[in-house]
Design a protein around this nucleic acid. Structure first.
Lengths: 193, 193
DNA sequence: TGTTTTCTTGATTGACGGATCAATAAACAT
DNA sequence: ATGTTTATTGATCCGTCAATCAAGAAAACA
């Protein structure tokens, strides 16, 4: 049965299964066997392709961040003006591609992972800096030197809304979540002081 | 050596050690032996008093929430007027008794724990509802029907600032953290629309 | 004094899980 | 044909850890 060129397919399946399993159990205490089983292969094969559980986790994290990055890039390209781009970033943060049940659960756990794993912390740092930089770029022309502080607030609130959603059951309400953050953004923008 | 009346002392020591260890390692993957050792006793004794690791975790979580609750109660009692009480709640959230390195690290992990452990979720739910209710009570007289939405935003931002602090190294800056949230609060309050 | 209760631990058990390995088989190259 | 590379798994090793147990020592009590 062995077909050739399986590596990318297997890896993708494992990454997907990892996010699903972490999201499902709400914990990093998922076994390689669980992940492999969901991905339709033996645990030995998972180790064969990734080397270690750690690497599987990191690949899953990279995948989530990549998806999110793509969503933001798309929103930025489609938006007009500083205000439009800011709204785009916020909306992208709660777009269905990222703001789904398993992804949110996994996100929270990757946050924890980055407390232990230096590489995970590095990845999360990149995400945070890029988000911050994007926000600042479009906030500066609108509110000047307050940009930095507001960007920090926005970043924190986005993360906060995320993890609070992780606690709730049921289908996440991306639009509602975006609205809360957007409301904050509007208040800050209309303060022309 | 056996002195009498050790139970509360041992339990308190274990709770403290648990928070320290979770905060130190940044993970729930702490062994009972690690906790017991830091608390100056054998792991068997820890099991003797708490029955299971799970119970130890829950006790630690209760302890953190109790400390936070006391801080908020104190702030509310000392504050005057709706606006003052709101500021008190925000400041209490970042007071040194709660906003210290280990506690923040533990907090994030308890968030994760509540995804798995029903009792942990229940505790976290109580905290969130009480915070929300406190905020709403004092927001309503100031901004009326927008109170609910703003309270949700404030809660999310507080949590967000917390977990972002968990990622940073070094001594946490409670005053700076409080200021970010306070700024948001001010903007919302000055909108008399 | 003797018995019971409280406190304490070292040793052990039992389960689980990450990682490795040997073995099988298809695809491909020469 | 034959050898090499890629794919794949079942079985296994080794370590870890929560939980239990048996036993001892000291206080309290009768």
């Amino acid at each position: 049965m062995p077909k050739v060129g399986m590596e990318p397919i297997r890896k993708a399946a494992l990454v997907k299964a990892t996010i699903t399993e972490i999201g499902r159990t709400g914990s990093l205490d998922v076994t390689v066997s669980q992940i492999a089983k969901r991905a339709g292969m033996s645990s030995a094969l998972a180790h064969h392709y990734f080397g270690s559980k750690e690497q599987i986790f990191l690949a899953a994290m990279r995948h989530i961040l990549t998806l999110y990055g793509a969503e933001v890039r798309g929103a930025l390209a489609a938006a007009d003006g500083s205000r439009g781009r800011l709204q785009g970033i916020v909306r992208a943060s709660f777009a269905p591609s990222s703001f789904r049940r398993e992804t949110i659960g996994a996100w929270l756990n990757f946050y924890v992972l980055s407390q232990t794993l230096p590489e995970a912390r590095r990845l999360l740092g990149i995400y945070q800096r890029r988000l911050n930089s994007n926000l600042c770029n479009d906030l500066r022309p609108l509110i000047g030197m307050r940009a930095e502080a507001v960007a920090r607030g926005l970043g924190a609130m986005i993360d906060g809304v995320y993890i609070r959603e992780a606690l709730k059951g049921g289908t996440p309400d991306g639009a509602g979540a975006a609205e809360i953050v957007m409301e904050y953004l509007e208040r800050e923008l209309e303060t022309t002081a």
